[in-house]
Design a protein around this nucleic acid. Structure first.
Length: 478
RNA sequence: UCCCUAGUAGCUCAGUUGGUUAGAGCGGCGGACUGUUAAUCCGUAGGUCGUAGGUUCAAGUCCUACCUGGGGAGCCA
């Protein structure tokens, strides 16, 4: 007999037919004559109720059916007599595939804290919450490829090991095969990287953008979707040392085209989640509601599904950096000196400012554009005012910056001048600059932090709970 | 990296101004129960109080350092 997935069995109303399912026991309960097993196989958040007539099975088997055990069960699908489900499986044969010692198995049929489950990340997939999160994570990854494929973008694999630290986007992880205790040294006593694997210092990538631009300047529209590494000592609910990033890069797009794409992209993904992950979203929404019960009214966040609907349906605010500074200066918290950090044209916005704009002032996602060039990267398009660059940051409630992007500077001379001003090694970047020497054209792109986006969609509060095995300072377990 | 906070049973927590033998709920185990929904009821086992020092007649409780978790900030996606 062919095994059926529980999601299909639950959908089916063919009572009377014999089915075979396999999965893991969530709970077992019952009385002397009858037992009920909640079986889950990961195909859906819902469990299949297995009805066991105790007299038909031997004691030892039933004793070993404990929370966490893997079972193969065949039986007749019947209308449920209980009220929690429509159909249930009357067990005819049960095979214990693998037991789970109840004294040692850490996942109990009770509520666990996320912190505890994080320490048991290898088993947390077996909980409702993490099952839902990782099914949604998959759906979003799939929807990203689907979206770009339908728009004619090409998926480009940019390198994970790079030998240029030109972007200066924070600390990098060194990749080396040199003996860490006795590395070869030069006559000056410095480490001799010419004898390292790549013949020069190499690192894990902090962004695929620069290589992505090379692809876009031939293929037209590309995107990357891969792991990214930052060796920053950041201990927050929004940072990982290893995370996934989506970076589309488009030839012939100006900043407005770039914003249009970013907004449509985010809304489409959220729409996809609402259309395809409702069971899991519903569960997470309920969970969130329970959690927020104890919080005072004004600290509660918007109901999850309502929030997703609202973002998918509303137009994002578009606002220049200069306008944002003016709004902040006119704001109540500014006048009452509630902001911890100064607000002045030229300084970078702090999260308290971004949060005010998104959550209090506009109450919608905001795209901020045209930042002062001093606080943005060298490759951004220099505007005619000579003061700002064509940058865009998409700010989401609770999450903050979810997308950072820009139109890229396509003028060779302007770009080289800016690189020199910012001490970017021009010679090493010859390959990047070649796109501006040969057939240069306006182009744009942005980066979306995948886990930050998953935080938003699932309503989870900590980025470590939306990636299977989080890497953070002092933690690379599993 | 900085600030705040926590670490007591498998889990979630209580433990009074320092004072006998460290408690509860859940989970586990044993039993009861004719269909349960985090089942219910009765019983039972389970602890180097994060680690190392120190103060004291006496430390889970006070002090110091370190480790780990959580929250916030910076940096950023």
């Amino acid at each position: 007999m062919k095994r059926e997935k529980i999601i299909e069995v639950l959908k089916s109303n063919e009572t009377g037919k014999t089915v075979l399912v396999k999965g893991w026991v969530r709970t077992k309960r019952g009385s002397k004559n009858i037992n009920f097993i909640a079986l889950n196989d990961g195909s859906t958040i819902h469990n299949l109720q297995i009805v066991v007539e105790v007299e038909n099975f031997n004691d030892k088997l039933l004793r070993n059916i404990t929370t966490g055990a893997a079972l193969s069960v065949s039986g007749e699908l019947t209308q449920s007599q209980g009220s929690g489900q429509n159909v249930e499986l009357r067990a005819q044969e049960i095979e214990l595939l693998g037991g789970a010692d109840p004294d040692k198995y850490p996942i109990q049929p009770k509520r666990h804290t996320l912190e505890f489950l994080r320490e048991n990340a290898h088993l947390r997939f077996r909980t409702n919450t993490f099952g839902a999160v990782f099914r949604i994570r998959h759906a979003m990854a799939f929807a990203i490829h689907k979206y770009f494929n339908e728009k004619g973008f090409y998926y480009m694999h940019t390198p994970i090991i790079t030998a240029s630290d030109a972007e200066g986007a924070g600390q990098m992880f060194r990749v080396s095969t040199l003996d860490p205790v006795n590395p070869p040294t030069t006559e000056e006593g410095e480490i001799d990287y010419t004898r390292d694997f790549f013949g020069k210092p190499a690192n894990l990538t902090v962004s695929g953008q620069l290589e992505g631009e090379l692809g876009a300047m031939a293929l037209g529209e590309i995107y990357t979707f891969g792991p990214t590494f930052r060796a920053e000592n950041s201990n927050t609910t929004r940072h990982l040392a290893e995370f996934w990033m989506i970076e589309p890069e488009m030839a012939f797009y100006d900043l407005t085209d770039n914003m249009d794409l970013a907004e449509d992209f985010l809304k489409s993904l959220i729409r996809y989640a609402l259309d395809n992950c409702m069971d899991d979203l519903q569960f997470l929404a309920n969970r969130l509601r329970e959690e927020e019960k104890n919080k005072p009214q004004d600290q509660r966040s918007m109901e999850l599904i309502e929030k997703l609907e609202s973002v998918a349906g509303s137009d994002f605010v578009r606002c220049t950096y200069t306008e944002a500074i003016e709004i902040l200066k006119r704001s109540k918290p500014y006048k009452k000196k509630k902001f911890q950090f100064p607000v002045d044209w030229g300084v970078d916005l702090q999260s308290e400012h971004e949060r005010f704009l998104v959550e209090k002032h506009f109450k919608r996602p905001v795209i901020l554009i045209n930042y002062p060039k001093e606080i943005k990267a060298f490759y951004m398009k220099q505007n005619d005012d000579n003061k700002t660059v064509g940058a865009m940051d998409v700010l989401f409630p609770q999450i903050g910056e979810i997308i950072g992007g820009s139109q890229r500077e396509e003028d060779y001379n302007k770009l080289v001048t800016r690189m020199k001003e910012m001490d970017i090694p021009v010679e090493e970047m010859w390959w990047y600059l070649d796109t501006r020497r040969f057939g240069s054209a306006p182009h744009s792109g942005f980066g979306l932090g995948f886990e930050r986006f998953i935080l938003f969609v699932t309503g989870m509060g900590n980025i470590r709970d939306v990636i299977p095995f989080p890497r953070t300072p002092k933690n690379a377990e599993f």
